[in-house]
Structure formats: structure tokens, C-alpha cells
Write a protein that binds this DNA or RNA. Structure first.
Lengths: 337, 337
DNA sequence: GTGAAAGCGCTAACAT
DNA sequence: ATGTTAGCGCTTTCAC
């Protein structure tokens, strides 16, 4: 069933049918009604492929997700998908490994799929202007930004929290509660992305509080995976590392750490406090409830798509939005002063 | 950059370039090399849209996810996406609400996107042959099956656990541990899908164990959402319902229930045991560790795509695979006999 | 082995 | 207001 068949069935030309299909005004009411009727009764659905071809563009937005093991992305993916669909576009999602280059993969998808835009979830924060030249459609970085300042103002879009500052805030919160031996649970300290940024916030907070930086206090999990965090924390505890609080760069990792603490006989928060950043729903159900800086995930997904749409429709330059976290006080942090 | 440009650059015809692009044998080695060279150096990527149009089919597999709030789907979505990409196809994902009709949405997508196949995640279990006629491409039901037997053998494909039986198994496990007052935490009892099937398994188990069915023992959450499960359980506890164990139809819901129990002053498992079905990674990190029947999620996603590929490539009829769960004993169930 | 040409289903001038 | 027609970029006969 093609547009031709509909045209024949209605006794009109294909252009008339096409006009009805695209809600053009220049069709007589009578013809419009007839065409609509036939379309309805024949169950006709236009071939998007043909439409895309002639318009030399599709209705697809690519979502490139880097690092699959973080449940933090789940809610964002949902919000992104919802928004994209609500805007009349289609989401094509592709996951890539932590070692893959999201820009290259995005560029591939862009051309193969004739994408109209791309949302990157969880990428590096230090793109160079040169490597971005392969991208010819608007894109927006969701949940991370160019926080190393390697890109000129206005040349890219992002929606994220201020990772370094929020980490700083979390750590000083522990300091205010009297903690002086504060450990950091990180994925890596050199990923040029979220983990490194939050680690830097941790370091700055320690410095500002007049606390020394010690390798003993850094728990390196290697990834954002809950199991890795659990094992790394367990190992650190086995070495009898001395700390009264843990700042985890992610909720997910904090939950792994809490199990390790528990199994090592250290109660949270009596023997060790835990604070994290992310605000997973799940964290509210743990015992003790995790104290965490909540990212507005639904909003972040939504805003990302809004910015992308503005760019696609030529409304304004790319812009970077920084959203604030909200401290959700659970019961995993104890005052000790 | 189109195929024409490449042809011109190489001094050959578009057909020759097309042949090279599609790995046809009938091209001279010399031409092939030249074309490949130019393609490489010019960064040319074929327009998939045009290819799809002429082949009257795309490389897209649709993933229709129904009910967004269940973290159980996360891992499956990942496995499905990985497998689809590995097979050289593209995943187009669409989420739909619990009230939407997945078959209708699938049919829409099928035609708009020229899908080659569809994976349904979380649908009803009682399709009629008639309503499936709108689907003209192979599809596979992932994580649920036609367990009401409304479809003729060999007319659909699925990968799932035997929901009713696994629920039966979970409940009898509680019985064996001495529990006689066993509550069921369900989403609904009439959704013609997973919740109802597992509830039926619960009922059968009670009957076989000679235990009466009581409304007092049914906690109706209305959805699979953790918050709904938490609230429903809290409400049931406020009514001082009398039970020593809870069978939750999903891990996620069990975690909500455990918080409600804790807040009501009931310790798990000392005062109340909890068992569930799903096997979320997260459940291993809760305290007490949740005892649950684990579904092989990664395998389920992978197998679904394998079956779909077989159907797309005309290898064999649709088939239904039932996978077994594995009991992961946590610490949430206590023997009381 | 290679090229010319006819479409795939649709949109968008352009003509009427 | 409506119809005619030329492509969009590619694959695939069908000649040569």
C-alpha cells in the first residue's frame, strides 16, 4: 500500500495525498476528508524511509551511551526517549564500551542513519575542537560537560551538574559533621571524565579543610560497577585503612561499599559514614538510607532533548546548562563532633 | 558525498561502486581496489536510507518496552541491544505505558520504520491470533510467553521463565521453611501478564500446601514500582495483617516491602521472611541479601535476538524457549520449623 | 566485467 | 486547489 494506491483509490493525484499527509492547507475540505477516510480504512502508513530519503534527513536522534553498568543512566535514558518521542522523533540507541570513542561512533551513526542530532550519555570531558569536526549534526552531552575548558564557549551543548563542585560540597559536608579521615571511592582518577572531576573536588575539599591527601584514603574501583566498588572497598578494609567516612563518586558504588563495610563488621553510620552523588531511587530503600546529592535525572534528560531540538530547528546557539543537585539526607552520615 | 561522486572519482559507473559496496564477486580486482581506496580517503559512508528504500526493508529491529519502572528490564535491554548490534542490525527502542497496546504500537513502528523484526519486553500473555495479524514481521516476546494458551503452537516466539511454576516454587520454598501465613506482594491480579501468572502460582502453592487463601494476605501494589510496593506493604502492615513471610512477584517490589517492614519494626528475616523472583544485581547488596529466583537476563536478551534472527533469515519456525531460574539464597528467609 | 537505466515511495517545485 | 514530474541515493536487472 503506497501513496499511489491511495491516490488511485481516491481519484486524486499523489501530490494531493501527500499534502493531506503533511497537513498542508492547500487542499479542499472534500478531498481532504476523502483521502483521510481511505487512509484510515486501508490502514495505510507512509513509508518513512522514502520520506527521509527525499528530505535528505531522517527523524532519528541517536543516543550514544558509554559505560553500560551504571544504573544512573536508566532514568535518563527513559526521560530522553520520552522527550524524543514527544517531539515526533525516534530514538536510536547504541551502547558503547568504556574504551570506545563515542565521537567516532556518533559520527558513524550520524551518516549511516542520517541522524538529526545526537545525545551523548557519559563521555569524556576533554574533547578537542578538532575531533568534533567529524560531527555534522547538533549534539548535546548529557550528564557531563567540557569541564576542562578544552572547547570554545558556545561550540557545544551540555546538561550536567558541576561535578567538581558537587564533590567538594559532599566532602565538606562530611567535614562539617566532624570527619577528618575521609576516604574517596572512585572509578578512576584519570578518566578525563566524571570520576576524575569528582576526585578533584574531593582533593580540593581536603586541601581547603587543611586535611592531607593520602593514598591510603583512595579506594580505586576501576569502574562504576557495584561489584568492583564492593571488592575494592573490601580490599581496602582488609588493609585496615583508617577512615571514618567515605565519599563515593556514585550512589551505585556507595551501595557496594556499604556491603563491604557491613561484612567487615563496620556499621554505617556508627563506625563509618557514607555520602555519595547521584540520587538513585534505589538508594532510598537501602538501610541505612543513603545520604546523597541527587541529580535531577528526569529534568536532565528532558532539557538535553530540548536543547537539541532548539539546535535542530535553528533556534539559538548550543548552550550549556548546569543543574544543581539536591542533598537528600538519609541516615548514612553521622555527626562525630 | 554520494555513490555518484565516488563513481566519478574512480572513473567507473555507479553499478561498479555498488558492487564493491556490497561485496559482489563480479568486479575486477583493480577496480575494486581503486574504489575501496577512494571510499576510504573520501570518508564516504553509504546512505542507509536509500539502501533501505530500494531494498524495501531496513536493518532496524524494534524494541517495544512496556512498563518503564522495572529495573529488571535494564539488563535485558542491554543484552538485546548488544546482540542486535552484533548481528549488524540497529535497535530502535520505544517505551510505552502500561495502558498502551504493545501490538498496535509495534505495528505502527513496523511500517513507519520498515522494521525487520520486533522484540517485545513485558507485554500481555493472552494475545489472540486475530490481533497479531497486524504484525507482518517476525517478533519475539521476551520475559513473557503465551501462558494462557490463546495462541496456536508455533505461531509465536518467546523466551521466558515459567512464571506460574517459579512462583509456585518460591512459595513452597517458604512453606518448607515452616511458614504457614504467607503473604503475596503483587502488582495486579488481573493483568493477564506476569503479575497475574505469578499470583496464580502463589494460589496453587497455597492450595497444594493445604493453606487457605485470604484477602488479608494479598498486598496489591498496583504496579511494579518500588514506591508503590513500599506504600502498599506499609498500609497492609498498618492493618496489622498477620503473616510470617512475603512472596514478592518481583525483586524490586520486595526491596520496597523490606523497607516498609523495617520501618514498621519488623526485622527481616527474624520477624518476617521475604522471597522474590527476578535476581537483580542490586538485591545482592541489600541487607539482608534478598533470597530470590534469578532469571538469566543476559541470556534471555541474547536468546530472544537469536530466535528473531533465525526467523528473519527464514531459518525455522518461531519457537518458545523456557529458561529456568536459579535460586540465589540470600539471608531474607528464615526457617521457623 | 561493466554500464545504462528503471525504479523503491515519497516530497516539492512548477505548471495549470 | 490540483496535477505533473523531477529527483533523493541506492540496488538491480538487462544489455553489451
Amino acid at each position: 500500500m503506497t501513496i499511489k494506491d491511495i491516490a488511485r483509490l481516491c481519484g486524486v493525484s499523489v501530490s494531493t495525498v501527500s499534502r493531506v499527509l503533511n497537513d498542508r492547507p492547500d487542499v479542499s475540505e472534500e478531498n481532504r476528508r476523502r483521502v483521510l477516510e481511505v487512509i484510515e480504512s486501508s490502514n495505510y502508513i507512509p513509508n518513512n524511509t522514502a520520506r527521509d530519503l527525499v528530505k535528505t534527513k531522517s527523524d532519528a536522534i541517536g543516543l550514544v551511551v558509554r559505560g553500560v553498568s551504571n544504573p544512573f543512566y536508566t532514568d535518563i535514558i527513559r526521560a530522553v526517549e520520552d522527550s524524543i518521542t514527544a517531539e515526533g522523533f525516534t530514538m536510536v540507541m547504541q551502547q558503547i564500551g568504556t574504551c570506545d570513542d563515542e565521537i567516532k561512533r556518533g559520527a558513524m551513526m550520524e551518516r549511516e542513519k542520517r541522524l538529526r542530532g545526537i545525545v551523548f550519555l557519559g563521555g569524556r570531558s576533554d574533547y578537542t575542537p578538532e575531533e568534533l569536526t567529524v560531527l555534522n549534526v547538533p549534539f548535546v552531552c548529557c550528564s557531563y560537560a567540557n569541564q576542562y575548558g578544552t572547547l570554545p564557549e558556545g561550540s557545544y551543548a551540555s546538561v550536567s551538574i558541576a561535578d567538581e563542585e558537587e564533590a567538594y560540597r559532599a566532602v565538606t559536608e562530611l567535614y562539617r559533621c566532624g570527619h577528618r579521615r575521609i576516604a574517596a571511592l572512585v572509578a578512576r582518577t584519570d578518566d578525563r571524565a566524571i570520576s576524575q572531576l569528582r576526585y578533584q573536588g574531593y582533593l580540593r575539599a581536603l586541601a581547603d579543610c587543611g586535611l592531607p591527601t593520602e593514598e591510603e584514603l583512595v579506594i580505586r574501583a576501576g569502574s562504576f560497577d557495584i561489584g568492583d566498588a564492593y571488592r575494592a572497598t573490601a580490599e581496602k578494609l582488609r588493609q585496615e585503612a583508617d577512615f571514618t567516612a567515605v565519599f563515593s563518586i556514585a550512589d551505585n558504588m556507595a551501595l557496594g561499599a556499604m556491603r563491604a563495610l557491613r561484612e567487615a563488621g563496620r556499621r554505617v553510620p556508627e563506625d563509618c559514614s557514607v555520602i555519595a552523588i547521584d540520587g538513585l531511587t534505589m538508594s532510598e530503600y537501602f538501610h541505612p538510607m543513603l545520604t546523597t546529592l541527587c541529580q535531577p535525572m528526569e529534568e536532565m534528560g528532558r532539557r538535553s532533548v530540548e536543547i537539541l531540538m532548539d539546535m535542530i530547528h535553528g533556534r539559538g546557539r548550543p548552550r550549556c546548562e548546569t543543574v544543581r543537585t539536591v542533598l537528600r539526607r538519609g541516615a548514612s552520615v553521622r555527626r562525630i563532633n
